[in-house]
Design a protein around this nucleic acid. Sequence first.
DNA 1: AGATTAGTTATCCATTCGGATAACTAATCT
DNA 2: AGATTAGTTATCCGAATGGATAACTAATCT
Lengths: 133, 133
Amino acid sequence: MTRIRATPIVSLMGNQLAHLDHVFGALSDATRRAIVMRLCEGKASVGELAKPFDMALPSLMKHIRILENSGLVASEKIGRVRMCSIEIEALETIEEWLTAQREVWAQRLDRLEIYVEKLKREEKANARKRRTR
Amino acid sequence: MTRIRATPIVSLMGNQLAHLDHVFGALSDATRRAIVMRLCEGKASVGELAKPFDMALPSLMKHIRILENSGLVASEKIGRVRMCSIEIEALETIEEWLTAQREVWAQRLDRLEIYVEKLKREEKANARKRRTR
DNA sequence: AGATTAGTTATCCATTCGGATAACTAATCT
DNA sequence: AGATTAGTTATCCGAATGGATAACTAATCT
């Protein structure tokens, strides 16, 4: 019996786990998703980002912090204005997680299919028996 | 000028927005992601789900509630045991959002490419001018 | 130099979150 | 019928979250 993978999944994922917390957490807020959406169209200063929102600047800044913290957004201060940009790769973290889940799910479907096949074979066998009874 | 879409995106997405809050929110917790992962392998009772966690049952139940609330998990009580299962379609909500973002991002890259092309053309023109000066 | 602009820091506040315990209901087993 | 099992409800608690205001710093404009 070959042990393909000795290390448990959990340790393989390592600190990625905590990271997922932050990425998903960051996107669980509509304001933050809107900011991400806006930044997908191109860089923007904190002020520009704030305009569409009926929210005090410091409140909005918090959101930006959270986004930066999650790795979804990067920013650089030039003079007195801070320019923000999306880090599109961070979205891939999520994609990866999603694909992993769907793979497990698909495998289970496969197993289920095999099981259903077995049931069908048995059913046929029974039918034959019944016919020849 | 043809108004392709009169309704603003926000209203088109409708309650989907609030839904995204819940889906992303649900997945922002490691325990909950683990539950989803487990359920991708097949249905499980609350008790089975609880086993791997060093957590009181009511605490875990809360997580299940949150997952149900987000539409990621469904459950049905038969006798005294409640069986839970993933609703894989809920993950698609996220995929959709991600693709939408990446599309906007890609479009922006296209625009940027066009811009860079323009710059290159101008550069060439200048070079020609310089050569022939 | 003085006024304006663009963020930033510090605090505060109500609400939600993630956990726990205690006490309960309703099925199932013996 | 009585004991056990599988969840459920209610309540509590400290920490985190999403918002606000006030007061501040540092660049830029006039």
